[in-house]
Write a protein that binds this DNA or RNA. Structure first.
Lengths: 335, 335
DNA sequence: CTGAAAGCGCTTACAG
DNA sequence: CTGAAAGCGCTTACAG
């Protein structure tokens, strides 16, 4: 049993104990391919390192190398926990195999990305959030060498950025409903949610597909996660009943609509059909079960990693997300 | 508009442009209270830094200071997304006010905590995962100065670590059900879940409370998130119907039980009552709505932060979590 | 109030 | 194959 040293051991300690120079220690421990070191020496170094419990200082090696191995994965706080976990896992696993270490961050204001990136000396940022040019510049000033962002928005831009990768959600919802004979649509946005921009992008997809198919544009309603309030709003709708369906921008609201319908005594499908998005685990468990649209989140994570690996130093890439997502409809009892 | 410099500016560049020494730049930028610097000088330094887009190198300052400002928050992957987000937010917000930067990590094997802590040069680790003595020692060898862990488990320990903070969940479930007249209990564990240890700690709470109240011990069943399978398992139960209730270890399984009951044509409460845990947003939206137990997750996050702030350098604290959690029952239609 | 200088721990040309 | 030495960018006694 070795007593923990008062001071953290350095490569000099390892060199001393193994009887070689610090350079050799570094060569051995980093497996430098340009050096040929005898097996005996390697073993001595490894043994000394193990004996001392030597752990290289990441700060020192980042300082000397001029870069770290850290990739900051900045997630839109709009991504829900379930989906976001799948994305993080996909990216982390893929990049780990290339020797990177991935750290997640998903706090409120995008400016905090800069603080974190700087503090951890991130060599790269993969963002599933929008970056403004100002934030991108700050990141580069903070030494981030590669940046991959879902999209970049000009500060001056009026209105909503389009999130083109969300459009297929709305399109698939409409296609599915139309094929089941529902041609009068209600679109359920969230009430007071940070995720409103996502919901509106999906709504845009719905609008586009209604136009394509020659359907009337949807009636739009904002719903909280409160079944009493949802019931009240449903009663005020002008389009119910009759071949009518609610497109919920995500499953929880869809489940809320189903709950409110139960309270109102409305029949599912006959009075109102419902489709959600995300395929939360509970979507299949509720009664009636919820038809929904699901994207391959883990695939998004991997796609982010792949796009990142293509990047050269000091390269910024934007708008990769559009091609990465593939959605499908999961048909259940609510449609 | 300034062209981005080919090279990242350093404090020497700022010193040159503002006509002072690098020491003065450091004093000004770090607001060193032991120095008195004229307002004019301060302004010149700040202006030069802004002009150059100077961002201090975190690697260099960590190397020189011997420590970073980074706290690694290691979360048990067992924490679900929703709960874990609340915890992270609580901790991050509290520690940010003290000048720390909090980064989350929640990958599978606890050993990866060491890799991340080392790579980001974390000054501290706050863990909601169990730490083994070996991992704790590795963290300290990697330069982590403060460690706060929910609990520490010896490698040699047989059986499950008790997670004492989970016990009240089971106790509250039983208390609530008993007070409603349900005295025959079924405990629903997850089938094939990483979260099984949590479920078993909650089950232990149920067992203890049953003993305290003089109830029969629960019948235990493992359920997947698949309503057909759940229905099959429910039919095989020996204790249904009659003043019987299912304690689900968490809400999703509870919702699955309700779904399976609908498929079986069983009446809620009369044939079987259900209580969950976590109070997921959908728990109130499903039909029938799900009674559940909820802990104050944000408070856990804050409690972790507070406990951390009490720590001295090179101090390790374990077992703080037990007192931090407060649970309550949210009563709905399923009981 | 300011500046010259040391040193944090590492990596890597370069000279043997 | 190995080692002496420079230097990454910062902070901080210390001497003015």
């Amino acid at each position: 049993m070795h007593e923990p040293p008062a001071r953290r051991p350095t490569s000099a300690d390892v060199a001393r104990l193994s009887g070689v120079s610090r350079a050799t220690v570094s060569y051995v421990l980093n497996d430098d391919p340009r050096q040929t070191i005898s097996a005996a020496t390697r073993r001595r170094v490894h043994e000394a390192a193990a004996t001392l419990g030597y752990v290289p200082s990441a700060a020192a090696s980042a300082l000397r190398r001029g870069r770290s191995r850290l990739v900051l994965l900045a997630l839109d706080p709009l991504f829900s926990g379930h989906i976001s976990d799948l994305i993080v896992e996909g990216t982390t696993e893929r990049l780990r195999r290339e020797g990177y270490v991935v750290v997640r961050h998903s706090h409120g204001r995008p400016e905090t990305i800069v603080d974190i990136a700087r503090e951890i000396s991130a060599v790269a940022v993969v963002s599933l959030t929008f970056l403004t040019p100002a934030i991108r510049r700050s990141l580069q000033a903070a030494g981030v060498r590669r940046i991959l962002a879902a999209a970049e928005v000009s500060e001056g831009l009026q209105g909503l950025p389009d999130r083109p990768w969300e459009l297929p959600v709305g399109q698939l919802q409409v296609d599915h409903l139309a094929s089941r004979g529902y041609d009068r649509l209600v679109y359920a946005l969230p009430e007071r949610s940070q995720r409103l921009p996502i919901a509106q992008a999906r709504l845009l997809g719905v609008r586009m597909e209604c136009a394509t198919l020659g359907l009337d544009q949807p009636e739009v309603v904002a719903l909280p996660l409160d079944r009493a309030v949802i019931a009240r709003r449903l009663r005020e709708l002008s389009r119910v009943p009759g071949r009518t369906a609610v497109c919920a921008y995500e499953d929880q609201i869809g489940i809320g609509v189903l709950g409110a319908m139960a309270d109102l005594g409305w029949r599912v499908r006959e009075d109102l059909a419902v489709i959600g998005c995300d395929d939360l685990p509970v979507a299949s468990l509720v009664t009636p079960s919820l038809t929904t649209v699901v994207g391959d989140a883990a695939q998004v994570g991997v796609a982010a990693a792949e796009a990142f690996l293509q990047l050269d130093d000091d390269e910024v890439r934007t708008g990769w997300a559009a091609d990465a997502l593939h959605y499908t409809v999961v048909e259940r009892d609510s449609t």
